[in-house]
Design a protein around this nucleic acid. Structure first.
Lengths: 195, 195
DNA sequence: CCGGCTTGCTGAGCAACGCTCAACAAGCTA
DNA sequence: TAGCTTGTTGAGCGTTGCTCAGCAAGCCGG
């Protein structure tokens, strides 16, 4: 149907890297609108204008492909959250929170899909998510200049769940100002990690 | 393989209600060990000793079946959490929290599967979960004798996410005593709803 | 221009799964 | 025994994840 699926030149050859990047990119575009498990290889191949077989040449299994797409999404978020080098520690967490809310505001359905796909579906996919969460906890605790014992790590992880849920709801129905939201989240984290 | 799949009597006939209950029961047993989307109709039918076709006679679609199973699981949890009639309001939330932790302690993987399946996979399935959460919020706010405006509802819902995450982690690696956990959760909820 | 090599790429096809449909048969009643 | 209701089945269709043998685009040495 699209020009891509019936190109003027009978066959277009790409380098392996280009093709991989294109396929992951298509996955990133499809992810927000399509529940992870409903995304078919056929659809991706059709959008890329290639055969199903080629997709399996680059990603041995559907799971591999989804994992790669999820990892790409996680990397984008991670880079967006990472504080600029030289930021004083006491501002790092506040800045990350602010950027996180901004991210959810900008791509609400994309973020929802990411969180859902990560928490719910495939164990391999959720592993990517857990890995990023673990890295974020490390980052947060070092920014707060607190030792990261097991207890505190648990509390910060649970606070992530709290934050994700609340920000997700708040974007849909703002029951307070943006600043109030940020202050509340910051405050809950402080109280949790203080003791 | 099993006796059920090749019974002595060539065919066993059940009432519609019995069969439905049996199929839902099988789903409940399978749910903890099997990711929702990996559970196949074939497997359920095989365990019940019936043909696939019969399952589709009772549940028009796979989604319908999963929804029914999830609803059954939600009902079990709901009944377990519900305070005994006559409980004074100030003890209701504490009691529910206590029973919730007990539930997760007793069926850790079952609860994990429920939360994951609910948050992640199918929208229809997660709807069952959201419905129960909404009912729980109502219950909690009335027990706390607080008006349930939109803001408070959001905060309690987010606190659920916090609680689920923390209790799930704590069961795997107890970093505090059970009483400390309960007190912490209770305290966070109080602070959140106070303002 | 040509033979040969690498490698991106395809089409046919298989197995598993969700789902349909026409028909069989168990158990009851007249 | 005939007949009705309804629980139950097997054959089969379309889709989807995945495999495999082989085609052909682009580059090379001659």
């Amino acid at each position: 149907m699209t020009a891509a699926s019936r190109p003027d030149h009978p066959r277009l050859r790409r380098t392996a890297g280009d093709r991989r990047a294109q396929l992951v990119q298509i996955g990133l575009e499809l992810l927000p609108t399509t529940p992870v498990q409903e995304l078919t290889i056929d659809e991706v191949a059709r959008r890329a204008g290639i055969s199903r077989s080629l997709l399996f040449h680059y990603f041995a299994t559907k799971r591999d492909y989804y994992t790669a797409v999820t990892r790409a999404a996680a990397d984008l978020l991670w880079e967006h959250l990472l504080p600029a080098p030289g930021t004083p520690p006491d501002q790092q967490v506040t800045g990350m929170l602010d950027r996180y809310v901004g991210w959810v505001e900008t791509f609400p359905e994309s973020h929802l899909a990411f969180v859902r796909g990560a928490g719910g579906g495939d164990p391999w996919v959720s592993e990517v998510y857990e890995e990023m969460r673990a890295r974020l906890v490390e980052l947060a605790l070092s920014a707060l200049e607190l030792p990261d014992d097991a207890r505190r790590r648990q509390l910060v992880l649970a606070w992530f769940a709290f934050t994700e849920d609340l920000v997700g709801q708040w974007v849909q129905e703002p029951t307070m100002t943006r600043d109030e939201l940020l202050e509340l989240l910051r405050d809950v984290l402080a109280r949790l990690t203080d003791r």
